[in-house]
Design a protein around this nucleic acid. Structure first.
Lengths: 151, 151
DNA sequence: AACAATTACATTGCACACAATTCAATTGCG
DNA sequence: CGCAATTGAATTGTGTGCAATGTAATTGTT
């Protein structure tokens, strides 16, 4: 008698995989936001950067990378595009010329008001109560933090 | 008196937590799997394609795209890489020459046994019971399906 | 002060992800 | 049958995401 091949079969089914659920949910969210964010001249990752800046303006590239868990290879070109559309400025720190501070322009600050309606489309799509959304968010955050620790 | 700017502030923070949680969890998972999948000569999206093929061999490119919610612009080069390492073959349908069937090679089928241990690393990292993982997976799938319907 | 190690950002190369377009094969309709 | 419309993949161009590398500025040590 062999050792239960069924068990590993069940584990390897696509829909049983937590990783595929998260992966496909992330892609679905990007697609949901796309038409909304296009009106603001933002991509989804650029929107996340703007959210971070609206909460705390003027961080260095590495601080932003820490917050979003992205490295400079991703952020540098992204930030240059945000600078090109006029939402941020990239300025060298006078005390430490290695650092580059990312600061909102007037247009970048004004955008926050126009972005106020963006979250509504996800909340509407989710079709569940705000407490339920908060609970799900916390579960996913806990999972993410444990994965980070394990990696 | 202005109309509660705090409300939109909170909304933006809530949205930050929800969409960013899924986004960052997805990235964290990719990073967790990376060293494990490298031993199998697979990237994370390639692993998802292999999971789909182990469940049902020989689909067309568009059927695979339907299952994974990816288009030909993503799948065509990815499948060519899987063909290059020898895990799949790409064969034109004899009845309809527009279609390309993706079929596992012997090496591709053999890989399934070696991949049996892959899900374990996420389960270990998650530090929670299997029923809890199943529940969380289902919640995320439900969210994803509702988002897809709304988009 | 000199210099090795570290830090911060930029650059390069590879692999997705997706919109838009192209091209060939097939289907539908008069 | 003939031909327009449709379908299925592939291609092209833009924007991430990340490892590896490069470069300049700063820090620590003697």
């Amino acid at each position: 008698m062999r050792s239960t091949p069924q068990a590993s079969d069940e584990m390897l089914k696509l829909d049983n995989q937590l990783c595929f659920a998260v992966y496909s949910a992330s892609l679905a969210m990007t697609r949901l936001y796309k038409p909304v964010l296009e009106k603001l001249q933002l991509t989804y990752p650029q929107y996340l950067v703007m959210l971070a800046l609206w909460e705390q303006d003027g961080p260095t590239v590495s601080e932003l990378g820490e917050r979003l868990s992205l490295d400079s290879g991703t952020l540098t070109p992204l930030l240059k595009r945000l600078e090109a559309v006029g939402y941020v400025t990239r300025l060298r720190d006078v005390a430490d010329e290695r650092r580059v501070h990312i600061t909102l322009t007037a247009a970048g600050r004004k955008l926050k008001a126009r972005a106020a309606s963006v979250p509504g489309c996800l909340i509407a799509a989710a079709q569940c109560s705000v407490p339920e959304l908060i609970s799900l968010t916390q579960q996913i955050q806990t999972l993410r933090d444990r994965i980070r620790k394990a990696a």
